[in-house]
Nucleic acid binder design. Structure first.
Length: 554
DNA sequence: TTGCAGTCAATATC
DNA sequence: GATATTGACTGCAA
C-alpha cells in the first residue's frame, strides 16, 4: 500500500522528511544499479517494479553484525525470496567492496560537521576526519545508512569495545577519528546502544561507521597510527610551547575553555554547569514516579520548591525519560541474549560492564523499586532479577509489564481509573499524552514508600498523576513514531494485522530482531509480556479505529 | 508547543 | 588519564 502510494504520488524531495526520503534513495540506488550518485533527484520518476530491491540491499554492510534474522519488516514487505533479484546485485557488490575497503578518509561530514573543529595537529598528514568512507564513490554516509541492512547494534558495540580494549585504544581517539563524536557520546553509545530499529537515520550513522571500521582490516593499525601521531604532535606542541614560552594555543580543540584562568571575557560567560544535589534528584525522581510527564504547572512548582530553574527541571525530565528508556532497551537485549543461555544473571555476560544504571544513579528511577517496592521484583525475570546484584536491570525490564498487568492501585489514589481525567491536569487533557516511556518505575509505594525523605516534589505532583498514568503504557510516543518509521521506510502495509502486531511487539520490546528471534520463544516472561502487549496493541488498534476518547487502563 | 533523539562537554568516578 | 554520568542544547516531527 505504501509503495503504491509512493509510486503514484511521490512527494517532492523538498517536502520529504529524512525518513520519507529513504525509500526514494533506495529506489534510486536500485535504479542506478550502482551506488553513490550523490544526491538523488527523485521527483516525478515512475520507477518500475521497485520492490524487491530493498531486500537486496540487505547485505552490504554485513560482515557479521547484521542481525541474524533479516528484518522482518523488510522481508515481510518484500519478496520473501531470500536472494535478491538481479539488478541490485551490482550495487550490493560495490557497496560491499566499498565497505570493505581500507576506507580512505573522507570529508563527507554530513551536516558539515567541521572536520575536527580546530583540531588536530594530527592534521599532520593524517586525515583526522571521521568517516572512513568512500573517497571516490561519493557514497555519503547517509546513503550508506539509508541502505544499510539492519545491524546488530549491541553486537557491534560489543565488538568495538573489545577491539578498543584489546588494543588499548581510547574512546576519545576512536570517537573523534572514526565516529566524529566526543568521548562522552562514544562512551554512552558503547554502553547503551539502542536497537537498530529504534534509531533514527542519524542515530544509525555511528553504528554504520563502527561496522565499517570493524570491517576494515587495518582499523586498529590506523587508529594506532593516529594515536602515535597525536602523541607526537602533542610532544611537539609541548616542546615548542615550552621553548617559546608561548602560551601555546590550547592544543587544538580551539575550545579551550578549561584553559581556564585566562580571563577571556567570553569564557567568563560560560555558565557553570548545574549539578543537582542528591536530594534534588531524589525529589525529581519521586516526582517522575508520580508523573513522568508533569504539566507545566507541576514543573513550575517543582522548580520553585527545589529552587531550580524550570528549564532545569524540564531538561531533567527529558533526560530522565529518555535515559530510562534506553536503559530498558539494553536490559531487554541483555536479558534476551542471556536469559537464553544462563537463565540468569551472569553479570559477566553483561558485556563486561554492568548496566550502567546498576550503579544506581543514572536511571534509577527504576532502581528505586528495589527498596520498598521490591515486591515487584518478584516475578521480574525470576533468577535474573534475583541474581542481579542490584536487582535493577531485571526489574527495569519487568516493571513495565507489571504495571500493565496490574495497574497498581497503590499508585496514588487514582481517581476513577476510567473517565475523568485528573482534576488538576487541565492543561494536559485533550492531548493524547504519550505514555511514560518506560512506565514509571514501580512505585515504591506511591509517594514513596517508607520514604521519609522529605519530598517536596511529591506533593505537587501527587494529585495530578491520574490523567497521566492513565495514558497508554509502553512508550507511547516513541512507539507510535517508531511504527510510522517502519512503515515509511519499509512499506509493509500488506502484512496481515497479526504480523504487524507481531513486529510491533518486537519493537515494543526494544529487541533487535536478532535478539528477538533468539529468545522470544521460551522465555516465559517474554511470553507473558508478549501476551500483555498484544492485548494492549489490540486495544490500541481498536481505539484508533474508533476515534473516540478512550480510557486507558492496562 | 511539546517531546524526543542525538550530542556536547563539564564533572565525577575509576 | 580514561571512562562514565548528566545537564543542556539543537533540530526535527507531530
Amino acid at each position: 500500500g505504501s509503495v503504491s502510494d509512493m509510486l503514484s504520488r511521490p512527494k517532492p524531495w523538498s517536502k520529504l522528511t529524512q525518513k520519507g526520503r529513504e525509500p526514494f534513495i533506495r529506489m534510486q540506488l536500485w535504479l542506478n544499479g550502482e551506488l553513490g550518485q550523490g544526491v538523488l533527484p527523485v521527483q516525478g520518476q515512475q520507477p518500475g517494479p521497485v520492490l524487491h530491491s530493498v531486500t537486496s540491499l540487505q547485505d552490504p554492510l554485513q560482515q557479521g553484525c547484521v542481525s541474524s534474522e533479516s528484518t522482518p519488516k523488510t522481508s515481510a514487505s518484500c519478496s520473501p525470496a531470500p536472494e535478491s533479484p538481479m539488478s541490485s546485485s551490482e550495487s550490493v557488490k560495490s557497496l560491499t567492496e566499498l565497505v570493505q575497503q581500507p576506507c580512505p578518509p573522507i570529508e563527507t561530514s554530513k551536516d558539515g560537521k567541521p572536520p575536527e573543529p580546530s583540531d588536530q595537529p594530527a592534521s599532520d598528514s593524517q586525515p583526522t576526519t571521521p568517516l572512513p568512507l568512500s573517497g571516490h564513490s561519493a557514497l555519503s554516509i547517509q546513503e550508506l545508512v539509508a541502505m544499510s541492512p539492519e545491524l546488530d547494534t549491541y553486537g557491534i558495540t560489543k565488538r568495538v569495545k573489545e577491539v578498543l580494549t584489546d588494543n588499548n585504544l581510547g574512546q576519545r581517539l576512536f570517537g573523534e577519528t572514526i565516529l566524529g563524536l566526543t568521548q562522552g557520546s562514544v562512551s554512552d553509545l558503547l554502553a547503551r546502544p539502542k536497537p537498530w530499529h529504534k534509531l533514527s537515520l542519524k542515530g544509525r550513522e555511528p553504528f554504520v561507521r563502527m561496522q565499517l571500521w570493524l570491517n576494515d582490516p587495518n582499523n586498529v593499525e590506523k587508529l594506532m597510527d593516529m594515536k602515535r601521531m597525536e602523541k607526537k604532535a602533542y610532544m611537539k606542541r609541548r616542546h615548542s610551547s615550552v621553548s617559546d614560552s608561548q602560551p601555546c594555543e590550547p592544543p587544538s580543540v580551539g575550545i579551550d575553555y578549561s584553559q581556564g584562568a585566562s580571563p577571556q571575557p567570553q569564557h567568563q560567560l560560560k555558565k557553570p554547569r548545574v549539578v543537582l544535589a542528591p536530594e534534588e534528584k531524589e525529589a525529581l525522581k519521586r516526582a517522575y514516579q508520580q508523573k513522568p510527564y508533569p504539566s507545566p504547572k507541576t514543573i513550575e512548582e517543582l522548580a520553585t520548591q527545589l529552587n531550580l530553574k524550570t528549564s532545569t527541571v524540564i531538561n531533567w525530565f527529558h533526560n530522565y525519560r529518555s535515559r530510562i528508556r534506553r536503559e530498558l532497551f539494553i536490559e531487554e537485549i541483555q536479558a534476551g541474549s542471556q536469559g537464553q543461555a544462563g537463565a540468569s544473571d551472569s553479570p559477566s555476560a553483561r558485556s563486561g560492564r554492568a548496566a550502567p544504571s546498576s550503579e544506581g544513579d543514572s536511571c534509577d528511577g527504576v532502581e528505586a523499586a528495589e527498596g520498598p517496592g521490591a515486591a515487584d521484583a518478584e516475578e521480574s525475570g525470576g533468577p535474573a532479577a534475583a541474581a542481579k546484584s542490584q536487582g535493577r536491570p531485571a526489574e527495569a525490564a519487568a516493571a513495565p509489564e507489571e504495571r500493565e498487568e496490574a495497574p497498581r492501585p497503590a499508585e496514588k489514589a487514582q481517581p476513577p481509573p476510567s473517565g475523568t481525567p485528573a482534576p488538576d491536569d487541565a492543561d494536559d487533557e485533550g492531548r493524547p499524552r504519550a505514555a511514560p516511556p518506560p512506565p514509571p518505575p514501580p512505585p515504591e509505594g506511591p509517594a514513596d514508600g517508607p520514604g521519609p525523605v522529605p519530598n517536596p516534589a511529591a506533593a505537587p505532583a501527587a494529585g495530578e498523576d491520574a490523567a497521566t498514568s492513565a495514558a497508554p503504557p509502553g512508550e507511547g510516543p516513541c512507539r507510535a513514531r517508531d511504527g510510522a518509521d517502519r512503515s515509511s521506510a519499509l512499506p509493509s502495509t500488506s502484512a496481515p494485522a497479526a504480523a504487524r502486531r507481531a513486529s510491533s511487539l518486537q519493537s515494543l520490546f526494544g529487541l533487535p530482531e536478532a535478539a528477538g528471534a533468539r529468545d522470544s520463544r521460551d522465555n516465559p516472561l517474554r511470553k507473558k509480556k508478549a501476551a500483555n502487549l498484544n492485548s494492549i496493541i489490540h486495544r490500541l488498534e481498536k481505539a484508533a479505529s474508533r476515534e473516540e476518547p478512550i480510557e486507558w487502563e492496562f
